[in-house]
Amino acid sequence: MPEIEFSDTLPGVPDAFQRLWTPHRMVYINGEGKPKGHDDCPFCSAPGRTDEDGLIVARGEHAYVVMNLFPYSPGHLLVCPYRHVADYPDLTVDETREVAELTQRAMQVVRRVSRPTGFNLGMNQGAVAGAGISMHLHQHIVPRWTGDMNFMPVIGQTRPVPQLLGEGRELLAEAWHD
């Protein structure tokens, strides 16, 4: 067995490679805490919490807007129906209408607060299509800025997000009612 050499630097200490250590992302990467069913679905439990604790930005009658726990960019929101439903065609007419209206309003609010130059909108239907939580439908609203895609996601498989979720939620929730 080769002898292990120890150096003066430890993992997490900046070195010539300028690594950005994000160990908190391992929960997402490893799928830890992924819901197994309706009882532990985060999109079903969030509305039962306070807006601050659930990271909820706004509530409607049939759907609500929540910060994404693993955002692609600052202000990454999700619009979720309250009802535990997985497939878009299974939404009621009222749920479909409100998901669309909340998506429109969320875009307006994010534009006012953060001034993105574009958005990615979408629903990943099923795990094979990239849905992290495929059992409960949710619409992504991802603000984008010119030049926001740098080497980090491509080379480092890491996406630096410069704003804490709670701070982003507070700014967006305040602006929602302006």
Rank of each mutant, 00 (worst) to 15 (best):
Asp53Glu: 15
Gly54Phe: 06
Gly54Cys: 10
Gly54Asp: 05
Leu55Trp: 09
Leu55Val: 13
Val57His: 10
Arg59Asp: 15
Arg59Phe: 14
Gly60His: 11
Gly60Gln: 02
Glu61Cys: 11
Glu61Lys: 15
His62Cys: 13
His62Met: 11
His62Tyr: 10
Ala63His: 12
Ala63Ser: 11
Val65Thr: 14
Val66Pro: 10
Met67Arg: 08
Asn68Leu: 02
Asn68Gly: 11
Asn68Asp: 13
Leu69Glu: 09
Leu69Gln: 11
Phe70Gly: 02
Pro71Asn: 06
Pro71Leu: 04
Tyr72Glu: 07
Tyr72Arg: 04
Tyr72Pro: 12
Tyr72Asp: 04
Tyr72Cys: 09
Ser73Leu: 06
Pro74Val: 13
Pro74Asn: 04
Gly75Ile: 08
Gly75Gln: 12
His76Trp: 06
His76Thr: 04
Leu78Ala: 03
Leu78Ser: 06
Val79Thr: 13
Val79Gly: 13
Cys80Lys: 01
Pro81Trp: 04
Pro81Gln: 09
Tyr82Met: 01
Tyr82Ala: 00
Arg83Thr: 07
His84Trp: 01
His84Lys: 00
His84Pro: 00
His84Ser: 06
His84Asp: 05
Val85Pro: 10
Val85Met: 12
Asp87Thr: 01
Tyr88Lys: 00
Tyr88Arg: 01
Pro89Tyr: 00
Asp90Glu: 00
Asp90Ile: 00
Thr92Asn: 02
Val93Glu: 14
Val93Met: 14
Asp94Met: 14
Asp94Gln: 15
Asp94Asn: 12
Arg97Trp: 00
Arg97Val: 11
Arg97Met: 03
Glu98Asn: 10
Glu98His: 09
Val99Ile: 13
Val99Trp: 03
Val99Asn: 08
Ala100Val: 10
Ala100Leu: 08
Glu101Asn: 05
Leu102Tyr: 00
Thr103Ile: 02
Thr103Cys: 12
Arg105Ser: 07
Arg105Trp: 08
Ala106Ser: 15
Met107Phe: 09
Met107Arg: 15
Met107His: 13
Gln108Leu: 10
Val109Lys: 03
Val110Asp: 05
Val110Ile: 15
Arg111Tyr: 06
Arg111His: 03
Arg111Asp: 14
Arg112Lys: 12
Arg112Tyr: 09
Arg112Asn: 13
Val113Phe: 10
Val113Asn: 00
Ser114Cys: 08
Arg115Ala: 14
Pro116Arg: 01
Pro116Ser: 00
Thr117Val: 04
Thr117Ile: 02
Gly118Leu: 05
Gly118Lys: 07
Asn120Glu: 05
Leu121Phe: 05
Leu121Lys: 03
Gly122Lys: 05
Gly122Thr: 10
Asn124Phe: 04
Asn124Met: 08
Asn124His: 14
Gln125Gly: 04
Gly126Cys: 06
Ala127Glu: 15
Val128Lys: 14
Gly130Phe: 08
Ala131Gln: 02
Ile133Trp: 07
Ser134Ile: 00
His136Leu: 09
His136Met: 03
Leu137Phe: 09
Leu137Cys: 10
